[in-house]
Simulated assay, not measured.
Amino acid sequence: MAENSIQVMVVEDEQEIRELMALHLLRQGYRVTECASAEEALTELSSKNFNLFVLDWMLPGLHGVDILDRIKAKNQNSSVLMVTAKTEPQDIVMGLERGADDYLTKPFNPSVLIARAKALLRRANPKPEEVIKDDSEIAIHGLKMNFKTYEVTYNNEPLHLTPSEFKLLGTLVQNHGVVLTREKLIENIQGEGISVVGRTIDTHVFGLRKKLGEWGDRIETIRGVGYRVKMENS
């Protein structure tokens, strides 16, 4: 399963903590749904399936542990990471016995949160999304890039990109579905006579979108973070 097809629900009533979790998960390329209460989470459960739940225990109204059975009933192959300030051993045991797959106590380090989330998702044995590529060429939804000849075509029509545009597009498609920060993009495309600083990434993306036409709509802006290439069929 490709990162961009992984659905994650974050259930946390404290807005700053919820948004922090969502931001770090989003940077992994996951699709994140935020809920401020258990009741809101149950509503979302009826509309889509999720691969991972990041669930607070102490919530207004129903508590996180109160909906574990309903989460598991609706999403039998999903994983639940409980993130809570309840740190007593008996609380951890109760959370795990009620159906949580892992338990992380607050305050937490975001890198530990992501490591736990990835470990739970690996247990589900996700399969990578099929993209036709080899060491020198990648083809994705009509776009072909040859990294030996530096040729780019869309629906067999050649595109003329600048060196910076080629390296930027190549980085995005090789990391399809993953959100790349501007800093990461700068790091990947600098060198070989190419100098990129600051917001010039945005200028290059703007130019790419114009040259790519309808394919350019696949380059998604993630506000406050960077860019990624969407992979869903158009």
Score class of each variant (00 low, 15 high):
residue 190 Q to M: 14
residue 216 G to H: 13
residue 119 A to Q: 15
residue 182 R to G: 11
residue 45 L to H: 09
residue 69 D to N: 13
residue 110 P to W: 12
residue 157 E to N: 15
residue 36 A to T: 02
residue 176 H to M: 15
residue 103 Y to P: 01
residue 52 L to G: 05
residue 96 L to Y: 05
residue 3 E to R: 02
residue 3 E to Q: 05
residue 72 K to N: 11
residue 189 I to T: 06
residue 19 E to V: 04
residue 65 V to L: 14
residue 197 V to C: 11
residue 131 V to W: 02
residue 180 L to E: 04
residue 83 V to K: 00
residue 138 I to G: 01
residue 101 D to R: 02
residue 175 N to V: 00
residue 175 N to D: 06
residue 111 S to I: 04
residue 33 T to N: 11
residue 40 E to A: 13
residue 170 G to S: 09
residue 147 F to T: 01
residue 130 E to G: 10
residue 216 G to A: 09
residue 39 E to Y: 04
residue 229 V to I: 11
residue 44 E to I: 05
residue 87 T to D: 15
residue 215 W to Y: 10
residue 77 N to Y: 13
residue 220 E to F: 04
residue 109 N to M: 13
residue 32 V to R: 00
residue 147 F to H: 06
residue 14 E to N: 08
residue 185 L to V: 04
residue 35 C to E: 06
residue 138 I to W: 08
residue 202 D to S: 09
residue 115 A to Y: 09
residue 208 L to N: 06
residue 138 I to H: 02
residue 109 N to H: 14
residue 166 F to A: 03
residue 122 R to H: 13
residue 138 I to F: 06
residue 52 L to K: 03
residue 201 I to L: 12
residue 45 L to E: 08
residue 198 G to T: 08
residue 9 M to L: 10
residue 43 T to D: 11
residue 187 E to H: 14
residue 109 N to A: 14
residue 104 L to M: 12
residue 89 P to F: 12
residue 102 D to W: 03
residue 215 W to V: 00
residue 36 A to D: 02
residue 6 I to T: 08
residue 72 K to P: 00
residue 59 L to P: 13
residue 234 S to W: 12
residue 40 E to L: 03
residue 216 G to S: 11
residue 64 G to Y: 10
residue 178 V to E: 07
residue 179 V to S: 08
residue 213 G to M: 06
residue 201 I to W: 12
residue 163 P to R: 08
residue 206 F to D: 07
residue 159 L to A: 07
residue 97 E to I: 01
residue 193 G to I: 00
residue 160 H to W: 14
residue 152 V to L: 10
residue 134 D to C: 06
residue 231 M to P: 00
residue 190 Q to K: 15
residue 55 L to F: 07
residue 9 M to P: 01
residue 192 E to T: 06
residue 234 S to R: 05
residue 219 I to K: 04
residue 164 S to H: 09
residue 75 N to G: 11
residue 64 G to P: 13
residue 224 G to M: 01
residue 129 E to Y: 12
residue 108 F to P: 04
residue 214 E to P: 01
residue 186 I to D: 04
residue 30 Y to G: 01
residue 219 I to E: 05
residue 68 L to W: 09
residue 98 R to M: 14
residue 204 H to G: 02
residue 130 E to D: 14
residue 146 N to A: 08
residue 106 K to S: 11
residue 143 L to V: 06
residue 41 A to L: 03
residue 10 V to I: 03
residue 218 R to Y: 05
residue 23 L to K: 10
residue 56 D to R: 00
residue 34 E to W: 01
residue 158 P to E: 15
residue 136 S to M: 08
residue 21 M to L: 08
residue 164 S to P: 02
residue 205 V to H: 06
residue 142 G to L: 13
residue 91 D to Y: 08
residue 90 Q to I: 13
residue 27 R to C: 05
residue 93 V to N: 07
residue 148 K to T: 07
residue 2 A to W: 05
residue 62 L to G: 09
residue 14 E to W: 04
residue 65 V to W: 12
residue 79 S to C: 10
residue 26 L to E: 07
residue 1 M to H: 12
residue 227 Y to M: 01
residue 117 A to S: 15
residue 234 S to E: 10
residue 118 K to Y: 11
residue 126 P to M: 07
residue 203 T to R: 14
residue 24 H to T: 02
residue 152 V to E: 09
residue 164 S to G: 10
residue 68 L to R: 07
residue 213 G to V: 04
residue 81 L to S: 05
residue 29 G to F: 01
residue 41 A to K: 00
residue 28 Q to L: 05
residue 127 K to L: 15
